[in-house]
């Protein structure tokens, strides 16, 4: 178990290190950051002062080490637009993003587990086919189109729901659904396949043979055993998908979260914000992945014993 945990820790640290390095290389590949980001209207002295401040005349190695040192001590610089530390800019946007994420994951779990179980139990009837069509459509329709069609229908045409902001529960409806489309498609497929695997096992036959009701067989013995797989999929796949989805959905609905901030920073080329935002989201995703791996190992002795 300890060896397995160490492996996970090493993997997480290496992945984070790679992300930090990618953000550094990406910013330096694009030429002199001063020219790219501050552009015209800069006097010669101002330019020299900035070069001295960011040590841009030193070797790349020196810059890289200084950058790593900054990352480790939590120094990510100031936002070009806000003139505030980027950590503060990102931190105040974490909670709105977290709210939307929690709402979406909750909706996804409820809908996907229901649909996935139905699709597995009724896989030979029209119910199973209908569920798979829904799951398929979720994959094929990009979230921005789902969002746009909802806005057209429910805001502009029917005038039921607000488009911009996150003030009331009514503001949550469309962004949550738009975020969840892809997640539901993914999780429904996984739930269905996990349920099919479990329902084919010998202990299910035993449970039926000893006279248990079908509902109890499916929910307790079936879903109970499939839930390990389902939970691990939520941690490993849904986190990454949600991070990508929040970028699109938050910018459509002007949701004051990290995703919207990242798109604005990308368009305004506010590169310290962009850099720290990408690192922060990547840390969150890697942390969720690693915690899922640990939980999975705790739940399943085959994993922690096999690799240790």
């Amino acid at each position: 178990m300890i060896a397995y945990l160490l492996r996970l820790a090493v993997k997480a640290v290496v992945t984070l290190f790679a992300i930090v390095t990618v953000t550094f290389v990406a910013t330096r590949l694009s030429g002199n950051p001063i020219d790219t980001f501050l552009g015209e209207g800069l006097t010669a002295e101002g330019r020299q002062a900035l070069i001295d401040y960011f040590e841009l005349d030193r070797s790349l190695w020196h810059q890289y080490i200084a950058y790593l040192r900054g990352v480790l001590s939590g120094e990510f610089g100031l936002s070009f637009v806000d003139r505030r530390p980027v950590t503060a800019v990102v931190l105040e946007r974490l909670w709105p993003s977290g709210q939307l994420l929690l709402a979406s994951v909750a909706l996804t779990v409820v809908v996907s587990v229901t649909l996935g179980v139905l699709a597995a139990v009724y896989r030979r009837s029209w119910i199973g086919s209908a569920v798979m069509v829904v799951a398929f459509a979720g994959y094929a329709v990009p979230s921005f189109i789902l969002a746009i069609v909802m806005v057209l229908t429910f805001s502009y045409w029917l005038n039921w729901l607000p488009v911009v902001g996150n003030d009331t529960w009514r503001h949550f409806i469309m962004p949550t659904i738009a975020m969840s489309g892809v997640l539901i498609a993914a999780l429904t497929r996984f739930t269905r396949n996990a349920m099919l695997d479990v329902l084919g096992q010998d202990f299910i036959r035993t449970a039926r043979a000893k006279g248990l009701g079908e509902l109890r067989v499916v929910l307790k013995h079936g879903l109970g055993n499939a839930s390990i797989t389902v939970i691990s999929v939520i941690g490993l796949q849904i986190a990454g998908l949600a991070a990508a989805g929040s970028v699109v959905v938050e910018s459509i609905f002007s949701w004051p979260g990290v995703g919207q901030m990242l798109v604005n920073a990308a368009i305004l080329r506010d590169y310290p914000v962009l850099q720290f935002g990408v690192i922060a989201v990547a840390v969150a995703v890697v942390a969720i992945n690693t915690l899922t791996d640990i939980a999975y190992a705790l739940a399943d002795p085959r994993i922690r014993l096999a690799r240790a």
């Binding site: 991070a243 990308a266 990408v278």
Partner: peptide, 14 residues
């Protein structure tokens, strides 16, 4: 492990 949309944002912005 890394959500690719974020990398794409970073690269395209830079």
């Amino acid at each position: 492990a890394i959500p690719f949309t974020l990398v794409a944002l970073l690269v395209l912005a830079l």
